[in-house]
Simulated assay, not measured.
Amino acid sequence: MPVSPSTRAPRQLPPVAGRVDAALAQLDARIDWLLALSPIGNVALWESFEASGRTAVPPLSYIDLDLDLHETRRELLALPIEEIESPLLSGLLAEKQRELDRMLELVRLRDTDGFVNASLDLFGGVAPVLSQLARGILEDVAPGAPLEADVGIDEILEAVNAEMDWYRERTADFHADVVVDTDLNSMMMVSHGTLYIDGNLRLPAARVQPLIQHEVGTHVVTRHNGRRQALTQLEVGLAHYDALQEGLGVLAEYLAGYLPGERLRVLAARVLATEMAVDGEDVPAIFDVLHETHGLPTDDAFDVAVRARRGGGLTKDAVYLGGLCELLEYLQAGGEFEPLFAGKFALTHRKVLDQLRDEGWVAPPDLLPRYTALPDFPERLSACRTLAVGELCHKEPAT
């Protein structure tokens, strides 16, 4: 639903800031690091793992980006950041420039000894407090009630299309491409505004809407709202925006009515898998700990293990649980919910965004997620302001 039909459009950026902002957005689109680090041939990978007695996997395979890394880096570093008229904008755009430079390094170092350090530089590692929380969740949080995976790709696509229609009824320029891919290392994912769906996906009916609210209600909606801002980075993502985006995505599953215990356990497992990958452990060892020690189902344990080993040890997966923790702390301190959907940014940018708003460069979000229109949404959000992370799950779907 529109936040306010009377909201004025933000004013344009100054000339140099506008050119740098646009150039950074174009470079961001070219540096599709997530696609470059998403393994292909996942079915064959599992079959090989099974055939080995779950003791070995072949090397992960990836697509090759059609990208000249050296030339792209030269373009990136040549941007006239120091000439930007506003120190406020200069700081934000310089931060994004540094992040894109580290993303290029991540792609360049894929499957080399330097990859883990590049990932730690970009996403950080696992703090002891987060590791302790993850282990506690795996020990104390029980899976939800077993539900039959009774919904297939056709019904899921129908629900996704209905979701898109709901937003288009409220604002005509809402758009996202949808691609069905039978070789996807995720159930659903959004990359550069495109929603990818695993063509082999089957889900319990109660999980369809929460998953759609995670991907569309968070990632697509914030991209739409960011596209209406003067600063293009709010569409593609300011530096370090991942933690808040993924925290909002997981919270959306709870607010949409069904975040089961096993989903929270998977997020905790990703933290442990990240730790193990950083320490040099490979897929079989990670799988064994997650499946045999912590009781994750085979498909979840294998998926989490492979994700952790992407590129040689990708630490991004720890931000899901970490981002959820930071988001709950923010909400429990009285933080406002609606402004978090103005675009893609980090929680640390909130004060900067207030300054940008005061300068007229940022407007309130045009749309909020569909789940905010549920009759009991205020009560659900209020509960999130009091629950500990380990309590943020459901034993059964909300009615």
Rank of each mutant, 00 (worst) to 15 (best):
Leu290Gly: 00
Thr182Ile: 01
Arg54Ala: 07
Pro260Phe: 02
Thr298Ala: 15
Ser6Lys: 11
Thr55Tyr: 03
Glu71Cys: 05
Ala17Cys: 03
His224Asp: 05
Leu314Glu: 00
Thr399Glu: 14
Glu391Val: 01
Leu321Glu: 06
Arg310Leu: 04
Ala363Ser: 14
Asp300Ser: 13
Tyr320Ile: 09
Ser119Trp: 04
Ser119Arg: 06
Arg357Ser: 13
Asp177His: 05
Gln355Asn: 10
Leu109Asp: 08
Pro5Ser: 10
Ala342Thr: 14
Tyr258Glu: 14
Leu244Pro: 01
Pro369Ser: 06
Gln233Pro: 03
Gly226Glu: 10
Ala277Cys: 13
Gly41Met: 09
Pro339Ile: 00
Leu89Tyr: 07
Pro146Val: 05
Leu37His: 01
Glu75Trp: 08
Leu238Val: 08
Leu60Gly: 05
Glu359Tyr: 09
Gly295Tyr: 09
Pro2Ile: 14
Asp183His: 12
Glu75Leu: 13
Gly18Asp: 15
Leu327Pro: 03
Met187Pro: 02
Val3Tyr: 10
Tyr258Cys: 15
Pro10Leu: 07
Glu262Val: 08
Arg263Thr: 09
Ala273Thr: 08
Tyr167Gly: 02
Pro87Ala: 11
Ala36Asp: 02
Gly257Asp: 09
Phe115Arg: 02
Tyr320Lys: 06
Glu329Met: 02
Ala17Ile: 04
Asp198Ser: 12
Leu374Ser: 07
Glu246Thr: 00
Pro364Leu: 01
Leu328Cys: 07
Asp140Phe: 03
Ala388Gln: 13
Leu104Arg: 00
Ala239Thr: 07
Met164Leu: 15
Ala269Leu: 09
Leu120Thr: 10
Asp111Lys: 14
Val278Tyr: 09
Leu367Ala: 06
Ala205His: 11
Asp354Tyr: 09
Ser131Met: 11
Leu13Val: 09
Pro15Ser: 08
Leu234Gly: 06
Leu324His: 00
Ala243Gly: 07
Met276Tyr: 04
Asp177Asn: 02
Asp279Gln: 14
Leu392Pro: 00
Leu69Pro: 01
Ala23Leu: 05
Leu314Trp: 09
Arg8Trp: 04
Ala56Val: 08
Ala243Cys: 08
Glu105Ser: 10
Leu392Met: 07
Val362Arg: 00
Met276Ser: 03
Leu45Ala: 11
Ile286Glu: 00
Leu24Asn: 02
Val179Tyr: 11
Leu45Glu: 03
Asp303His: 08
Asp154Trp: 00
Met103Trp: 11
Asp177Ile: 02
Val20Ile: 12
Asp140Trp: 01
Glu338Ser: 12
Gly280Phe: 07
Arg11Asn: 07
Ser119Cys: 10
Ala94Met: 06
Glu253Gly: 08
Leu331Ala: 11
Leu104His: 01
Glu148Trp: 04
Leu267Pro: 01
Gln12Asp: 15
Ala346Pro: 02
His219Glu: 01
Asp121Trp: 08
Val179Met: 10
Pro210Val: 06
Leu264Cys: 12
Glu336Tyr: 02
Leu13Trp: 06
Leu238Lys: 05
Leu248Asp: 01
Asp177Gly: 04
Gly249Trp: 03
Glu50Ser: 11
Leu244Gly: 03
Pro59Met: 06
Arg307Met: 12
Asp366Ala: 11
Ala162Ser: 10
Gln229Trp: 10
Asp165Glu: 12
Arg102Lys: 06
Gly280Glu: 09
Met164Ala: 01
His294Cys: 06
Leu89Asp: 04
